[in-house]
């Protein structure tokens, strides 16, 4: 099946500054696609081009079979977006904003009533429905942005940093709503700089850095793609004989091995879930009783580090910014 969204050398320049640089992505129908990258990586700019809010400098995106350059109206009809910064008039009331949004998205009167009420309850703003945007907190405004998507249920739902400014409880609720939206049939694109968020939600993740795509795969494959990314720490009752150590080293998946203490070994390896039993068996055969094992998987931070040589925090500090006039 053809991907529902495909970007082809998608590029955006602001003056001389290249915010998005020949990006090639393909997003499948029905998936939650995470766009992960540090501040200034070009995530929002990419999403704005896909939603036809801004025009690409070069390249294009095909959305549901429609080129955003030649058929922007058709592409736009498939899309709904919850912006990173809530884009709302401060004097408007929450309920008015959502009602009008529902209307312009083509909901019938009866559908609208039900869905607006439901969405307001879902995001916990029913009691605040008659407040003006001005009088809401930052997190509440952000939730109004998300509510628009819940009401619209677009074929392609784009969410830019869905949980920035939102508390922990709210975060999980929004994650669940995103999953529910997907289960209803929407394809989701999610931009975030939170590793955990991308990890728990996405079917696939594209990591962006300085406008370029670094890598794109499932969270699991991304983590597995780091050689020796899994870490297994084993503590033993007594010191391990050299012979046993050598036998373990010979396993293909073991990339590196550090003797922290005579009876404490740290293995860097791949696919820990299948290798660890093998290691245990070797220890067992060589009569080396194990006291404790701790397995830790690499995080997406490690993945990012692997591909850029930088942690996300470092990348955010070092990413060049376009000069704003």
């Amino acid at each position: 099946m053809a991907p529902i969204i495909q970007t082809i050398n998608l590029t955006k320049k602001f003056g001389d500054f290249v915010a998005v640089d020949h990006l090639n992505l393909s997003i499948e129908e029905g998936e939650i696609f995470g766009l992960l990258g540090p501040n200034g990586a070009g995530k929002t700019t990419t999403l704005m081009m896909i939603t036809t809010v801004i025009k690409p400098t070069e390249g294009t995106a095909i959305v549901g079979g429609h080129d955003v350059r030649s058929e922007p109206d058709k592409a736009r009809n498939l899309i709904g977006i919850a912006f990173q910064e809530p884009k709302l008039l401060w004097v408007d009331k929450v309920i008015d904003v959502l009602n009008w949004h529902a209307k312009i998205c083509g909901l019938s009167k009866s559908e609208r009533k039900v869905r607006v009420k439901w969405a307001l309850e879902e995001i916990d703003l029913w009691d605040a429905r008659n407040k003006t945007i001005h009088s809401l907190s930052g997190g509440m405004r952000k939730r109004v942005e998300v509510a628009k998507l819940l009401i619209q249920r677009p074929k392609i739902a784009i969410i830019d940093e869905p949980t920035a400014q939102i508390d922990v409880v709210g975060k999980h609720r929004i994650w669940n709503m995103i999953r529910a939206l997907r289960d209803e049939g929407s394809t989701i694109i999610l931009a975030t700089n939170e590793l955990n968020e991308a990890d728990v939600l996405s079917d696939r993740i594209a990591i962006m850095h300085r406008g370029k795509l670094l890598v794109c795969d499932t969270p699991k494959n991304l983590k597995d793609s780091i050689p020796g990314g899994d870490i297994v720490e084993v503590k033993l009752e007594k010191e391990l004989p050299e012979k046993t150590l050598r036998a373990v080293k010979e396993l293909d998946e073991v990339v590196n091995l550090v003797k922290v203490k005579p009876n404490h070994i740290r293995f860097h390896l791949n696919r820990s879930e299948t290798v660890t039993p093998k290691i245990m068996e070797i220890f067992w055969r060589n009569n080396a009783p194990v006291l404790s094992i701790r397995i830790s998987e690499p995080s997406l931070d490690d993945v990012f580090l692997h591909y850029t040589g930088l942690t996300i925090e470092e990348a955010e500090r070092l990413t060049p910014r376009a000069k704003k006039p």
Partner: peptide
């Protein structure tokens, strides 16, 4: 609208 970014919102609508 420009000040509050609402222009982008209007541009993103199925319209």
């Amino acid at each position: 609208e420009a000040e509050h970014g609402v222009i982008d919102y209007l541009l993103s609508l199925p319209l």
